[in-house]
């Protein structure tokens, strides 16, 4: 019964696999998964193997007892609640801000955040089963929620989003004891699978929304450099968690847009590079004089 939809679903990236081979059709996906597993693994080295390279969790941490890291999303909420932070957290904030301003804010989402694995899984299953798109919650909803997340501490003095933030609950759970955190994982998975496609990361998550706002300064972008070679297979649109970011870069030549994907929602995941058989896309560091270094 499902054969038709199954064939349709599994078609994304097929052409790329056939022309480039399996490895090149999954190169950035593999690198990303490696980075995500490494993020959790380095934190787990301490409790599991007694090697304390990094302590804490994604909210704040300390590398080799020296270098602090602080998540700007958390730090801003603390400040909005009217509380000061001590210098360690402020220095950590500077380091993390600097890093994401350099590589693009939403690199956090696709290369670091543990929830990405969950929502990517839901998106894959949704494609595989050929499920409909679900409720059309605007992608701007996340900015409204972001506003609420920062306004609430100013009124009530607590970090309210942390009561439900799946990103910190899951990452902390993996390191400090998971308990019923899997309920959060299942809820996000089912939301993305059955309620709204790209629902959590693309429409709800205020953390991603904040990291989007850190993106514009970054010189590291995906670029549709060989857009003339596009054969309109739509695989990149189907696989992209934020497909609206592709159109101006890929099809905007007449309007003088692109070829760099400049939309702040692009997570620099590089999946479009993987699934494109004609190799339209590439990662590049772009300089203001239009020169570029391809990655």
């Amino acid at each position: 019964m499902k054969m038709g939809t199954l064939a349709k679903g599994s078609g994304v990236g097929k052409a790329a696999r056939e022309t480039k081979g399996w490895y090149l059709a999954h190169k950035w996906l593999l690198l990303r998964r490696f980075s995500q597993v490494l993020t959790i693994g380095l934190f787990l080295l301490g409790p599991l193997a007694g090697v304390w390279f990094i302590e804490g969790n994604l909210n704040a941490s300390l590398i080799l007892d020296k270098v602090p890291l602080t998540d700007p999303f958390l730090a801003l909420q603390v400040w909005m609640s009217g509380r000061e932070m001590e210098s360690q957290a402020v220095i950590g904030l500077g380091i993390v801000l600097g890093f994401y301003l350099l590589v693009g804010g939403r690199v956090f989402c696709s290369w670091v955040c543990p929830i990405n694995i969950v929502t990517d899984g839901a998106a894959w299953l949704r494609r595989f089963l050929g499920l409909p798109k679900g409720v059309g919650l605007s992608r701007n909803t996340r900015y409204w929620i972001l506003a609420a997340v920062f306004v609430l501490p100013a009124i009530g003095g607590q970090l309210y989003w942390e009561l439900i933030n799946p990103v910190s609950i899951v990452h902390r759970g993996l390191i400090f004891g998971f308990g019923l955190s899997w309920v959060v994982v299942v809820m996000v998975f089912l939301f993305d699978l059955l309620v709204s496609s790209d629902g959590w990361c693309g429409r709800i998550c205020p953390m991603g929304a904040m990291y989007s706002l850190l993106t514009p300064a970054s010189r590291l972008r995906v670029s549709a450099v060989k857009r003339q070679q596009c054969n309109d297979c739509l695989d990149c649109f189907k696989v992209c968690p934020e497909p609206h970011v592709i159109n101006p870069a890929l099809k905007g030549e007449e309007l003088g847009l692109g070829p760099n994907i400049l939309n702040i929602n692009c997570t620099n995941c590089g999946r479009c590079i993987d699934v494109c058989a004609p190799n339209v896309f590439e990662f590049a560091i772009n300089f203001s004089d239009n020169s570029r270094i391809k990655l």
């Binding site: 969790n57 941490s61 602080t70 603390v78 003095g157």
Partner: peptide, 14 residues
């Protein structure tokens, strides 16, 4: 004040 300032990182635990 604690709930406004604690960043839930677990460094105290460690």
């Amino acid at each position: 004040d604690f709930l406004g300032r604690c960043i839930r990182c677990g460094l105290c635990v460690r």
